[in-house]
């Protein structure tokens, strides 16, 4: 029996001469939250569309539970697309019933499950409201409910937080955790928000330009580029960035200094205690600091380390 619930073997997807996914090989374990982190256009959606059978890979193979896609039980996957994909002229309840029927969920179970989903996702009061009259956040939540009405083993969420207000996002994150913790589902998540990937995922695959750059737990990924804090310095004359970087690199305990989109990005252990020293060295060179901030190491820093750029919005 396969140890992985989904496995992609060197999948490639070409669109009219453009390679959207380039030799992606990865395994998703049963019962984990698996995050795809990458900027918009990195190939995340194309990858998961191939993993759920909406798109044929140009080459390579996708195995679900050790078997070829062709033999997959359609009930085992539920996908929540990035866009809001709903029937505007149906009510929340009718939409859930329709999708339940399409997955052949028995009537009594379907009713109970729909009620619970509406309750969990705070849509109970809107059960009989037409979709076109829902707010954006409510539509997003219904979009998710439709993906899980048939209680699939694997839930695929494509940019689920897109366009959500902080409150709705909290509801969503709580629900995603409960999918894994209470129901033992495998969740595959794509996001360009490192915060989301960091907090929710057991393992994260960082991809850019269709290629897998790293795959590990968020902690390991952060450790890989080293512990420490990140100091971001903006100087008034950006032309002198390289000059300042040279000075900072020579300082003790500084792990790395690079320029990212005009901002000097310095990583150091216990940066707080080193701040006066950093400022002094910079000002010695007669350079004025326009802005300075300090934060903890995040997955974004891992991404910067790997690609030299920030996650593109």
């Amino acid at each position: 029996m396969a140890s992985y619930i989904i496995e992609t073997q060197d999948i490639i997807k070409d669109f009219d001469g453009f390679r959207a996914v380039d030799g992606l090989s990865l395994q998703v374990k049963e019962g984990e939250v698996f995050g795809f982190l990458g900027p918009n256009g990195a190939g995340k959606t194309t990858s998961i569309n191939m993993m759920v059978g909406l798109l044929k890979p140009t080459s390579g193979q996708v195995l679900i539970d050790g078997q070829d896609m062709k033999f997959m039980n359609r009930s085992s996957i539920g996908i929540c697309p990035q866009e809001i994909v709903l029937w505007e002229n149906l009510t929340c309840k009718e939409s859930l019933k329709l999708m339940g029927d399409m997955y052949e969920v028995p009537k009594d179970i379907l009713k109970k499950r729909a009620d619970k989903l509406l309750d969990d996702l705070f849509l109970k009061e809107k059960a009989d409201t037409l979709v076109k009259n829902l707010s954006g956040g409510m539509k997003r939540r219904l979009n998710l409910a439709l993906a899980v009405i048939h209680a699939p083993d694997i839930v695929v969420l494509d940019e689920p937080s897109e366009g959500l207000d902080p409150q709705s996002r909290r509801v969503l994150w709580k629900y995603i955790r409960s999918l894994r913790d209470d129901e033992g589902k495998t969740v595959i998540l794509t996001t360009h928000l490192m915060d989301e990937a960091d907090r929710l995922s057991d393992r994260v695959a960082i991809i850019d330009h269709g290629k897998l750059l790293r795959l590990d737990t968020p902690d390991n990924l952060k450790k890989e580029i080293g512990e420490g804090d990140v100091v971001e310095i903006t100087i008034s004359d950006a032309k002198r960035n390289q000059e300042v970087i040279q000075i900072l690199k020579e300082m003790e305990h500084v792990l790395s200094v690079i320029e990212v989109e005009g901002v000097i990005n310095l990583r150091a252990l216990d940066a707080m205690s080193k701040l006066p020293q950093i400022m002094e060295s910079v000002e010695k060179k007669d350079v004025r600091i326009a802005d300075l901030s300090m934060r903890q190491n995040t997955l974004e820093d891992v991404f910067i380390e790997l690609t030299g750029t920030r996650l593109r919005e």
């Binding site: 697309p81 994909v85 709903l86 999708m99 399409m102 997955y103 439709l146």
Partner: peptide, 13 residues
């Protein structure tokens, strides 16, 4: 176009 067909397509319909 709206993608609702893709939803249905993934089901047993």
């Amino acid at each position: 176009e709206k993608g609702t067909l893709a939803r249905l397509k993934l089901s047993k319909m």
